[in-house]
Protein backbone atom coordinates (compact mmCIF):
# COMPACT_ATOMS: atom_id res chain seq x y z
CA UNK A 1 0.00 0.00 0.00
CA UNK A 2 1.39 3.41 -0.99
CA UNK A 3 2.00 5.96 1.75
CA UNK A 4 -0.69 8.57 2.11
CA UNK A 5 0.95 11.88 1.25
CA UNK A 6 -0.37 15.40 1.69
CA UNK A 7 -0.56 15.84 -2.08
CA UNK A 8 -2.49 12.60 -2.63
CA UNK A 9 -4.81 13.62 0.16
CA UNK A 10 -5.29 17.14 -1.23
CA UNK A 11 -6.30 15.60 -4.56
CA UNK A 12 -9.27 13.92 -2.90
CA UNK A 13 -12.58 15.63 -2.19
CA UNK A 14 -12.78 17.06 1.32
CA UNK A 15 -15.38 14.54 2.47
CA UNK A 16 -13.10 11.68 1.41
CA UNK A 17 -9.95 12.96 3.08
CA UNK A 18 -10.88 11.98 6.62
CA UNK A 19 -12.14 8.65 5.30
CA UNK A 20 -8.80 7.99 3.59
CA UNK A 21 -6.89 8.79 6.77
CA UNK A 22 -9.28 6.71 8.85
CA UNK A 23 -8.76 3.68 6.64
CA UNK A 24 -5.00 3.96 7.36
CA UNK A 25 -5.32 4.73 11.06
CA UNK A 26 -7.88 2.10 11.99
CA UNK A 27 -5.72 -1.02 11.46
CA UNK A 28 -2.84 0.56 13.40
CA UNK A 29 -5.13 1.41 16.30
CA UNK A 30 -6.88 -1.95 16.10
CA UNK A 31 -3.51 -3.63 16.74
CA UNK A 32 -3.21 -1.79 20.05
CA UNK A 33 -6.81 -1.42 21.25
CA UNK A 34 -9.01 -3.97 19.48
CA UNK A 35 -12.22 -3.17 21.37
CA UNK A 36 -11.94 0.61 21.26
CA UNK A 37 -10.47 0.98 17.77
CA UNK A 38 -13.62 2.48 16.22
CA UNK A 39 -14.00 5.12 18.94
CA UNK A 40 -10.30 5.97 19.12
CA UNK A 41 -10.06 6.33 15.34
CA UNK A 42 -13.13 8.59 15.37
CA UNK A 43 -11.57 10.75 18.07
CA UNK A 44 -8.23 11.05 16.32
CA UNK A 45 -9.91 11.97 13.02
CA UNK A 46 -11.02 15.21 14.67
CA UNK A 47 -7.35 16.28 14.61
CA UNK A 48 -6.07 18.35 11.66
CA UNK A 49 -5.17 16.32 8.57
CA UNK A 50 -1.61 17.65 8.51
CA UNK A 51 -1.01 16.37 12.03
CA UNK A 52 -2.71 13.06 11.23
CA UNK A 53 -0.34 12.53 8.30
CA UNK A 54 2.64 13.07 10.60
CA UNK A 55 1.18 10.55 13.05
CA UNK A 56 0.83 7.96 10.29
CA UNK A 57 4.56 8.29 9.66
CA UNK A 58 5.56 8.33 13.31
CA UNK A 59 4.53 5.31 15.40
CA UNK A 60 5.73 7.08 18.58
CA UNK A 61 3.47 10.09 17.99
CA UNK A 62 0.59 7.85 17.02
CA UNK A 63 0.87 5.69 20.11
CA UNK A 64 1.16 8.75 22.34
CA UNK A 65 -2.05 10.13 20.80
CA UNK A 66 -3.78 6.78 21.13
CA UNK A 67 -3.04 6.66 24.86
CA UNK A 68 -4.19 10.28 25.19
CA UNK A 69 -7.43 9.40 23.39
CA UNK A 70 -8.03 6.37 25.61
CA UNK A 71 -7.60 8.52 28.73
CA UNK A 72 -10.06 11.11 27.40
CA UNK A 73 -12.50 8.39 26.40
CA UNK A 74 -12.37 6.77 29.83
CA UNK A 75 -12.89 10.14 31.53
CA UNK A 76 -15.80 10.85 29.18
CA UNK A 77 -17.43 7.52 29.95
CA UNK A 78 -16.90 7.74 33.69
Amino acid sequence: QEPLTASRLAAAPLHEQKQMIGERLYPLIHDVHTQLAGKITGMLLEIDNSELLLMLESPESLHAKIEEAVAVLQAHQA
Binding site: H15, K18, Q19, L25, Y26, G38, T41, G42, M43, H76
Partner: peptide, 22 residues
Protein backbone atom coordinates in the same frame (compact mmCIF):
# COMPACT_ATOMS: atom_id res chain seq x y z
CA UNK B 1 -27.21 15.53 25.28
CA UNK B 2 -25.33 14.92 22.06
CA UNK B 3 -22.16 14.06 23.98
CA UNK B 4 -23.59 10.57 24.45
CA UNK B 5 -22.89 9.94 20.78
CA UNK B 6 -19.33 11.20 21.01
CA UNK B 7 -16.95 10.15 19.63
CA UNK B 8 -18.27 9.37 16.14
CA UNK B 9 -16.90 5.87 15.59
CA UNK B 10 -14.92 5.02 12.49
CA UNK B 11 -15.24 1.63 10.84
CA UNK B 12 -13.37 0.60 7.69
CA UNK B 13 -15.48 0.84 4.56
CA UNK B 14 -18.22 2.78 6.33
CA UNK B 15 -18.59 6.55 5.72
CA UNK B 16 -17.47 8.30 8.89
CA UNK B 17 -20.32 10.24 10.49
CA UNK B 18 -17.94 12.69 12.15
CA UNK B 19 -17.55 14.35 8.76
CA UNK B 20 -20.93 16.01 9.29
CA UNK B 21 -19.42 18.13 12.05
CA UNK B 22 -16.32 19.30 10.21
Amino acid sequence: GSSINWPPEFHPGVPWKGLQNI
